[in-house]
């Protein structure tokens, strides 16, 4: 009987998220990160005349390195709170999830802490990616 009262009051008091504001922040930060990455790509590809695939690899290395550093000095979580998907979706999200997991488990030592926990959050992405690549890959392979 009380359950219906709870449901009534809870439904009446749902919390609204600032959807519009969050979307704008995600757009701006996400776009800026991609713009910055494009700049790095241009630097390696057009300025240093490095071959395209190598330049892309170098771009990833630089972005991952900067993200890990920002995570280590304690700034990245504040940026992430502000931009939400703007930092989760680019590869910055992947790098941060690995660095933050490794960093947090530091107190349990190198093997049982850092090494064992590094993929705690990033594991899902890699597993999902490989599974999906395998399934879609099979489909593409059969059709060609």
């Amino acid at each position: 009987m009380e359950k219906s009262i709870f449901k009534k009051v809870l439904d009446r008091n749902t919390i609204k998220r600032p959807i519009f504001l969050n979307s704008i922040k995600a757009f701006l930060v996400g776009g800026t990160i991609c713009l910055f990455a494009q700049g790095i790509l241009w630097f390696f590809k057009d300025l240093l005349n490095i071959e395209k695939d190598k330049a892309i690899s170098l771009m990833y290395i630089v972005i991952v390195g900067i993200t890990s550093l920002l995570t280590g000095i304690g700034i990245f979580d504040k940026i992430g709170q502000f931009s939400g998907a703007g930092t989760i979706i680019p590869i910055t999200g992947f790098a941060n999830s690995m660095t933050s997991s490794a960093l947090e488990s530091k107190s349990e030592g190198i093997i049982l802490g850092i090494m064992s926990n590094m993929f705690k959050l990033a594991g899902a992405v890699i597993v999902a990616g490989v599974l999906s690549a395998f399934i879609v890959g099979n489909v593409i392979y059969l059709f060609r």
């Binding site: 919390i15 930092t87 941060n96 999830s97």
Partner: peptide, 17 residues
């Protein structure tokens, strides 16, 4: 945070609730 949610330096966004 470490036990129930995410590592303290994780960049996920916490909602206003």
């Amino acid at each position: 945070e470490r036990q129930f949610r995410y590592p303290t330096e994780y960049g996920g966004q916490k909602p206003n609730s």
